[in-house]
Amino acid sequence: MRPGGRAQAAIELLDEIIVAARDGGAAADTLIARYFKTRRYAGSKDRRAIRDLVYRAIRRAGDPPAHGRAALIGLAREDSELAAAFDGSPHTPAPITDDEVSTRPGVLPRWLAKRIDRSEHAALLERAPLDIRVNSRKTDRDAVAAMLPDAVPTPHVPNGLRLPEGSAVEATQPWLDGLIEIQDEGSQLIALAARARPGMTVLDLCAGAGGKTLALADAMGGEGRLIASDTNRARLSRLPPRAQRVDAGFIESRLLDPGREANVLGDLEEQCDVVLVDAPCSGTGTWRRNPEARWRLTPDRLAKLTETQSGLLDIAAQLVKPGGALVYAVCSLIEEEGAGQIAAFLARSIGFTPERDIFTPGRYLGPGKLLSPAHDGTDGFFVARLRRA
Rank of each mutant, 00 (worst) to 15 (best):
W175P: 08
L176Q: 14
L176F: 08
D177P: 04
G178H: 07
L179T: 01
L179S: 03
E181P: 02
I182M: 09
Q183S: 04
Q183P: 03
D184A: 01
E185Q: 01
G186M: 03
S187H: 06
L189P: 04
L189C: 06
I190G: 00
I190L: 13
I190T: 05
L192D: 06
L192K: 07
L192F: 08
A194N: 04
A194Q: 05
R195N: 12
R195S: 10
R197G: 08
P198R: 10
M200F: 11
V202P: 00
D204T: 06
A207M: 10
G208F: 05
G210P: 00
K212A: 00
T213M: 02
T213Y: 01
L214C: 03
L214H: 07
A215R: 05
L216R: 01
L216F: 08
A219W: 08
A219I: 06
M220E: 10
G224L: 12
L226A: 09
I227W: 13
I227P: 07
A228R: 14
T231Q: 13
N232V: 10
N232K: 12
R235Y: 11
R235A: 12
L236Y: 11
L236E: 09
R238N: 11
R238C: 14
L239K: 09
R242G: 09
Q244C: 00
V246T: 10
D247H: 08
D247C: 02
A248V: 08
F250V: 03
F250H: 11
I251Q: 00
I251K: 00
S253C: 12
R254V: 09
L255C: 03
R260Y: 06
R260K: 12
E261F: 10
A262C: 01
A262N: 11
V264G: 07
V264N: 04
L265I: 09
G266E: 12
G266M: 06
E269F: 05
E269G: 02
C272F: 07
V275N: 02
V275D: 01
L276D: 01
V277K: 01
D278S: 00
D278N: 05
A279E: 07
A279L: 03
P280W: 07
C281F: 06
G283E: 02
G283K: 00
T284F: 05
T286L: 09
T286D: 02
W287C: 07
W287I: 06
R289S: 04
N290Q: 13
P291K: 10
E292R: 11
E292A: 14
R296P: 11
R296V: 13
T298R: 14
T298C: 13
P299M: 15
D300M: 15
D300W: 13
L305G: 14
E307Q: 15
T308M: 15
G311V: 12
L313V: 07
I315Y: 11
A317R: 14
Q318W: 12
Q318K: 15
L319E: 09
L319T: 11
K321N: 12
K321C: 15
